[in-house]
Design a protein around this nucleic acid. Structure first.
Lengths: 200, 200
DNA sequence: AATATGTACGAACGATCGGTCAGATAGTTC
DNA sequence: GAACTATCTGACCGATCGTTCGTACATATT
């Protein structure tokens, strides 16, 4: 009943913070309990006790990464005016979170999705759910932009969301793989042109 | 000196064929010599002897996947007339190779890139090289299309190649993750619109 | 003071990892 | 037929994997 976090919850958060860092570089399978224990100077069994299984650890890491993502990318974008400004703020934040390596391996979810896309199980389902939420948010903001008259009335917002996501994703992939940050400008250019072509 | 492959080379190819299948689903790290041996009903050491190290196996798998990719996607596209027809044929082949799961886990290189993008080493370099070749091919075909007057004279072919790659990549990622093949249509729609806007 | 609970440790488990090595088998060459 | 090479096997190595279990310690509750 302390105002601060209980000891266990504190350790858990510290563990997950490190887990997300490792997983964004090495992957969720490359994330290892022994490695985690060594980094945090705790015992393997101590770490393990917090999660109960590796799969639970992976799921907890995804949940924690979602927290970070929402705080860093989504929340401040919501401060922008509804419609096109909010949509572009979200896109800017997304590109910034990749360029600034909020997760050291670039977008956490791009990595996790690529790793588990063709497998079955709870981790795959969690990753797919994250993706659905993200696409839902994108197309919803696009829809609001249409309603505000910022985008043309007939705009296919799902198609638009797909294309925006595609360009962001590619910027992240190219920049992390090659180290060439021009990819972020390419994405921005593509998205701006695409939005301009959908202007009312 | 036989016209057919020597025994060793035959085994090596069969091994790599299976290795590429496994790696496209489980990743190049999830690809395991023991698993490979079990699938091919050979001994671990027998497999190992063909490559000498796991890293060499991974590099060989990338090279073999490149062979498959070139045969399936690139070569038949080159039969189309130079310019826009050849470019669109390449794009169609790429989307088809993902949709038809020429690699069971979708695009082999998308998976390998996501896995090794943030790591250093020879595998990363090989993946990056594959990506460079792919982008080079795309932008070169785009350039030829400009020269043939199929695309507007001022077209930024690198930017265009980036956007085409982004839409293809996203289609693969979404379709494999969610099982929703409409992503391929979305990519096609986006690319067609984009090319039309660059028409001369 | 006694008890219960939350938290973490250390030793150990079987399985599997990448990798090594001596040798069996087969085919070719001299 | 002896020597050689290519190919593959099986036993084995140390390391690490995820996981289990009994226990120690601190804190909170009674």
């Amino acid at each position: 009943m302390d105002a601060r976090l209980a000891k266990g919850a504190e350790t858990r958060r510290a563990t997950l913070r490190r887990a997300v860092e490792i997983a964004s570089v090495e992957g969720l399978e490359g994330l290892t309990i022994g490695r985690l224990a060594a980094d945090l100077e705790l015992s393997k069994s101590g770490i393990f006790a917090h999660f109960g299984s590796k799969e639970e650890l992976q799921l907890a890491a995804i949940a924690f990464a979602t927290e970070i993502f929402v705080e860093t990318v989504v929340e401040s974008a919501m401060a922008a005016e509804p419609g096109l400004p909010r949509l572009t703020a979200l896109i800017d934040n997304w590109l910034a979170h990749s360029r600034d390596r909020v997760f050291p391996g670039g977008c956490f979810f791009a990595g996790a999705a690529a790793e588990f896309d063709a497998r079955a199980g709870r981790v795959h389902d969690a990753v797919e759910h994250s993706f659905d939420s993200w696409m839902g948010l994108l197309s919803q903001l696009a829809t609001v932009a249409v309603e505000h008259g910022h985008l043309a009335a007939g705009t296919d917002t799902c198609q638009l969301a797909f294309e925006i996501d595609a360009l962001c994703r590619a910027a992240n992939a190219v920049a992390v793989l090659t180290g060439d940050d021009r990819a972020y400008e390419r994405a921005r250019t593509g998205i701006e042109t695409r939005l301009r072509n959908s202007c009312a």
